[in-house]
């Protein structure tokens, strides 16, 4: 029962940052500078979500992450759909491992 209460507490504090800006700012026109900053966030956050994490998906073998990152970047650069980038990177790393990399 105690565990259920902890989970409910976790659920509430996780929901607060998700819901507040979306509802409080609805219909509000922010100053242009802040609008610009908010529009920049998706691309900045992608940079932070990719690096350095992608290099350490196998903490003991940095080359594994580098190989996977290279595969994903090349596929994406060639214009592949996101799903193909994901499946291609998985396939590439599967082969990399089966080859004993």
């Amino acid at each position: 029962m105690n565990m259920v209460l902890i989970i409910i507490g976790m659920a509430i504090v996780t929901y607060i940052p998700r819901v507040l800006p979306l509802t409080v700012l609805e219909g509000k026109e922010l100053p242009p500078f802040f609008q610009g900053v908010l529009k920049n966030i998706p691309y900045a956050v992608l940079g932070a979500l990719i690096f350095p994490g992608i290099l350490f998906i196998q903490p003991d073998d940095i080359w594994f992450g580098i190989a996977g990152a290279a595969a994903a970047f090349i596929l994406a650069f060639l214009g592949a759909d996101v799903m193909i980038v994901v499946l291609g990177a998985i396939a590439f790393l599967s082969v990399y491992m089966l080859m004993g990399g």
Binding site: L49, I50, A69, A71, V82, I84, V86, A89, M97
Partner: peptide, 13 residues
Amino acid sequence: QAMSIALYAMFVG
């Protein structure tokens, strides 16, 4: 192990 790249690959894509 191979699938641990999936979300990162999606971000790259």
